[in-house]
Design a binder for these strands. Structure first.
Lengths: 232, 232
DNA sequence: CTTCTATGAATGAACG
DNA sequence: CGTTCATTCATAGAAG
């Protein structure tokens, strides 16, 4: 039966265009991934329900998505981020350290500090105010040269803070981020871009967010975790 | 009760199974799912300990399982059932209409599955005597009883069997967007942008610490899963 | 086409 | 009970 449904959804309209959903699993668009990634990196690794809804609304500007998708995304992100972290730790530790010695464990502490970003939803206005007009739907093209970056980022993988501050917090660098983390700055780039986008949108500029990006390369290079650990 | 629970959770049971290499976690067999689902749908959503034991014994005819597994199963079942229901209601009432913007949405299973289940219940015999046989799925082995289908009881909520599809039914998916690839190149314009953003942010975000912590109320945020007619 | 891999979705097992 | 973590299943998309 599920097959029937699937068939129904599949067999027809498979000709052209794009608006027609080929029902299967959600496939986040690059822009959406950027947003999600940014939010995650901003410290909100586990958005509460209301935030999730808002995030979804934001994401919907770039393609259909549901709350569940957002929820799952964060769940998986947290989970995989953590797991990887652990693996790295483990391998770093050596071949096999079955030690139970004093090494207290767990608490994969995200000791990082948040960036200058208020670690909370800066994408999402406080309330369902007028800011993000969800009505805007369906224009994915337009500004074609808003940002142009070249090269690609190759971020190893490190569970650390994005450090947007590395650039922003010039003066005294009160926050963390060592100068050698230059690579990490690329992560910030994306976050910042999203911020810009958000601003454009929320300020009603309604600027059709349209950039382009290599959905291929960047993806692989974006493997890192949250920062967080903040708040209390 | 606490003792009972303790006992349940303490159950070892993880014997050997036919060609089953000791999994880390219990993976209910299709037949088992059917049984559980039936019991649940029959109205027994929260079986007391003694019932749990009986259920477990029944299930063991199809594979090793412990009381704890059964206990957890029902607990999760109740929980997820409820959540789903709330979500549906939420999206119907409060929420905003489904954004059908470009296509529908997400998945999160249970779309049109439901399966062949007798929408009713096949029960546990009054006493822990005869068991039953599920004619549908091939299994052998001496089950000396038969499921008794009985139509009655109240179905706790309005939904269908989810688990069954994992094996018996195919899953269903969601819709999603169309392909739109773009190319973005990264470069060092980042600094400029960041600066810009930073300025904007500085003004805009003087927001108070909102999201306090881990989601305390994610309540329900599943998406509407229009099983059908979900085109725009 | 088949195989592999990243990741969306599901769910068993807890935790508070 | 609601929420969260860990593991597993399933599959879209890339690689061969």
């Amino acid at each position: 039966m599920g097959d029937e449904l699937r068939d129904l959804l599949h067999s027809p309209n498979q000709g052209h265009e794009k608006a027609e959903p080929a029902r299967s699993r959600w496939t986040p668009k690059p822009e959406q991934i950027l947003i999600l990634e940014s939010i995650f990196n901003s410290g909100m690794v586990n958005p509460p329900k209301d935030e999730t809804v808002r995030i979804r609304k934001l994401l919907e500007k770039f393609g259909s998505v549901g709350d569940a998708n957002v929820f799952y995304w964060f769940q998986n992100r947290r989970s995989r981020s953590r797991r990887r972290q652990r693996q790295i730790q483990a391998s770093l530790n050596g071949g096999e350290p079955p030690q139970t010695s004093g090494g207290a464990v767990h608490s994969y502490g995200y000791s990082g500090v948040s960036s200058f970003m208020p670690s909370h939803s800066l994408f999402l206005p406080p309330s369902g105010s007028s800011s993000s007009s969800c009505g805007s739907v369906g224009h994915h093209d337009g500004v074609d040269g808003m940002f142009s970056f070249s090269g690609h980022m190759s971020i190893p993988e490190r569970e650390q803070a994005p450090h947007v501050n590395s650039i922003l917090c010039s003066s005294d660098g009160s926050i963390l981020c060592s100068p050698s983390d230059s690579v990490l700055q690329y992560q910030s780039v994306a976050a910042v871009i999203m911020l810009l986008i958000y601003l454009c949108i929320s300020f009603k500029l309604q600027t059709p967010p349209a950039w382009k990006m290599a959905s291929k390369d960047w993806k692989s290079s974006w493997e890192q975790g949250p920062i967080l650990g903040n708040f209390q």
